[in-house]
Design a protein around this nucleic acid. Structure first.
Lengths: 204, 204
DNA sequence: TAGACCTTGGGTAATTTCACCTAGGTGCTA
DNA sequence: TAGCACCTAGGTGAAATTACCCAAGGTCTA
């Protein structure tokens, strides 16, 4: 249900890489480390997916800023958080302008980074949801009659058991329908489903 | 969480009373039987509460229709479902006009009655909720800052664990806050909370 | 200072949801 | 007739929610 976070961490300083990696793992965030931007891009080529990318700015070869530009031109949706030891305002401004999600100066609190990452992911997901809103009617109208019945009762706050007795089917069947609804609508939990259903109701 | 249904069943025909009672019990609905409207009204005097009243129309003494009128004049909110063996359209129209929730002709399928009862209860609850909407801002504004934070993240679809790590408190504490929020807002589950929160957002 | 309230967090137990799976029956269609 | 989508419903196991209980520490106020 709750998707785990897959994060890419890019820094040429091994010590930084290791310490952050340890911390992130302790926060149950799957972290892949890369010493250079090129290494990371190679991983991307192999169809690896990341929910967020954390990269140092000053690195041999491709800089963090260059990486942001490269990813934007490739239409990579994952948010990019830049970290740097020698930042200045202009650099920060430039980073955000080219599309970095955040720009953090070292030394920083590890929890500060984590908060930034989470925030970035949430914002990018919200952007995704926003983009998806236009095919919301399509999604809801693709539901079968049964699925819609189940969805409406679920959104009304009834438990699977209650829905089952209401529709005269087993709670297990309700569960199955519900899972289909979730998948079709693209909701990760009831809260999201309720929100989308309400949006749909208002739109149509 | 899921409130059990307390139902009053009124019919002068013992056979009908017994058979319906049996069925309703099998559906886990607490049912109190009465042979006459007067008996039922006496129970009401003793502060008994019912979520729904199912009554025959043709009965010695007070008729079902009279009962509906009586209850309406007493401002009894519980919905009343009328059942009858010798109904006609006019009677049905009259019944609904005076405020009966439904009017069902015998013989009927037991599940038909059950569906009607549930529908009636749901509608009456929705009316209640509608009446409550005006103090919705009061409820939301009575939340403490922490409770509001937790509520917002919960409504966004995060699990207690996620909320905890986001706010840097234990999931257990989140759970406690969440329970408080539910109680204060008067929501029986997340679906309801999301709906109320969205209403509040739009209102204010 | 005592009481009220908030925040924090632990425990236990029942219930529910979620994510997988299999599988039979129905009805439509290429 | 074979394939497909749908409804049905069961199983397992992990995770989450809910409903209770409890207690300690902080703040604010009568």
């Amino acid at each position: 249900m709750t998707k785990s976070i897959h994060l890419a961490l890019i820094d040429d300083d091994e010590a930084v890489l290791d310490s952050l990696c340890l911390y992130l793992h302790s926060q149950k965030i799957a972290t892949a480390s890369f010493s250079t931007a090129q290494e990371f891009l190679a991983a991307l080529q192999q169809h690896k997916q990341f929910d967020c990318i954390v990269s140092d700015v000053r690195m041999p070869g491709m800089s963090g800023l260059d990486l942001v530009r490269e990813l934007k031109s490739r239409n990579v949706g994952a948010p990019i958080v830049l970290i740097t030891g020698h930042g200045d305002v202009d650099m920060a401004v430039a980073a955000i302008k080219v599309g970095a999600a955040d720009f953090i100066e070292k030394p920083f609190d590890e929890s500060r980074l984590l908060a930034s990452v989470r925030n970035a992911i949430e914002e990018s997901q919200q952007r995704e949801n926003f983009g998806e809103q236009k095919d919301l009617p399509v999604k809801f109208e693709s539901l079968t009659a049964r699925q819609r019945q189940v969805m409406e009762l679920a959104v009304a706050g009834l438990s699977n058991k209650e829905i089952g007795s209401r529709l005269d089917i087993s709670p297990k069947t309700v569960e199955n329908h519900r899972a289909w609804v979730m998948e079709r609508i693209g909701a990760r939990n009831i809260a999201e489903l309720v929100r989308l259903a309400m949006k749909y109701d208002r739109q149509s």
